[in-house]
Design a protein around this nucleic acid. Structure first.
Length: 345
DNA sequence: AAGGTCGTCAACCGCCGTGAC
DNA sequence: CGTCACGGCGGTTGACGACCT
């Protein structure tokens, strides 16, 4: 027994919205607020389905929407976040105030994927090959331009995001044996927010020793899992990333698909960097408005000279730290710092 | 000038997660 | 535990204007 489609009622208007309809919807929401989309059209006197009203409001009528062209900075953000997150447009939109997921999605499909195609066609390396594969195939099919005629819509199995997670995970944790073939998380496992103490996300889990001296309470594994999970949790100390953190950290750690630019900047060097990350993330406070402390172990090579980076408090050659503040709405501010330990010299 | 092609983007569709019951 | 309503998401479509031949 399938659920009745949202707009099954005959007689509902479709297609472009008129100025009059916009005015009715805007006035109604100003008077009654957002929500209750299903009953809104009837109450407002619109011959539209609730979904259509919601889309129109969110993507077009809201006052806080930013109009005008995507700036170079926004474009860079989109490219970087998309590299890290895949087609999670709403998540990406959350980092671009005033922009909607639909707008970003359209911009990607019409501008950036084409740029990427041309970039790659010129023989340049793509940071996340499997992530881009679908785009390239699509562009090749259409010859890199033009509108593609498609068969009747059928939901496609989503693999892109999973590949991204796996690739990003292996980028941070080279020891990981996860592959895109074996990791197939359900959509629920990708949700950005989980109750404190839960530990459900296999694709975004980072392994490393729990730092008991830091405020990781609530984020280290709980005791409700299976015996196996519990043992694993106790020994490995999985850290469950929030999506917002992943977004921000991926941007920081991997702003151009390679290297640890943050470290370079902190050391005042512009040398090319390659790095291997062991991904030992130790602690975090998750509550909005609180300080997030995250540390990890990174081995970097400046030119061909390898340097071991360790987490804050380590006694090896160097240590570094980044701090994230959740500003609310899953946007983060970041402080990045790194310094060389005197005793390591 | 006219018809064809292409690019853009608003809108729609189906699926899914969540919470209430 | 199952069902349902609701809201959200990402993929896709198609109208329309710009450009090309």
């Amino acid at each position: 027994m399938g659920r009745a489609p949202c707009c099954e009622n005959l007689g509902l208007k479709r297609g472009r919205w008129t100025a009059e309809e916009d005015e009715i919807l805007t006035n109604y929401i100003h008077a009654n607020g957002e929500g209750s989309w299903r009953t809104l059209p009837k109450n407002a006197g619109l011959l539209r389905c609730g979904k259509s009203c919601r889309l129109r409001w969110i993507n077009y009528l809201r006052e806080d929407l930013k109009r005008g062209n995507i700036t170079a900075e926004e474009e860079e953000t989109i490219v970087n976040l998309r590299s890290a997150l895949g087609n999670r447009w709403s998540l990406i939109a959350g980092h671009l105030p005033g922009r909607t997921d639909n707008e970003i999605k359209n911009y990607w499909n019409t501008h950036l994927s084409r740029k990427l195609y041309n970039f790659n066609k010129a023989g340049n390396e793509v940071p996340f090959p499997s992530v881009m594969a679908a785009d390239h195939q699509r562009m090749r099919r259409s010859g890199g331009r033009g509108r593609e005629r498609r068969p009747a819509m059928k939901r496609q199995k989503k693999t892109t995001t999973n590949n991204i997670n796996v690739e990003f995970m292996s980028l941070l944790n080279p020891e990981s044996t996860a592959t895109s073939d074996v990791v197939e998380p359900s959509k629920s496992e990708e949700k950005p927010r989980l109750p404190a103490g839960s530990c459900l996300d296999n694709t975004m889990r980072m392994f490393g020793p729990c730092d008991e001296g830091k405020s990781s309470v609530g984020l280290c594994p709980n005791n409700k899992g299976s015996a196996t999970e519990k043992r694993e949790s106790e020994s490995m100390g999985p850290y469950e990333w929030l999506d917002g953190e992943m977004t921000r950290l991926s941007y920081i750690l991997n702003p151009s698909g390679n290297g640890v630019v943050g470290v370079n900047e902190a050391l005042g060097t512009e040398k090319e960097t390659t790095s291997e990350r062991e991904g030992s993330v130790l602690s975090s406070n998750a509550a909005d408005g609180e300080l997030h402390n995250c540390s990890s172990s990174i081995t970097s090579a400046f030119d061909d000279e390898w340097i071991d980076w360790n987490w804050v408090g380590g006694v090896d050659q160097c240590h570094h730290q980044w701090e994230l503040w959740n500003e609310g709405d899953n946007t983060f501010s970041c402080l990045w710092g790194a310094e060389k330990d005197e005793e390591a010299d």
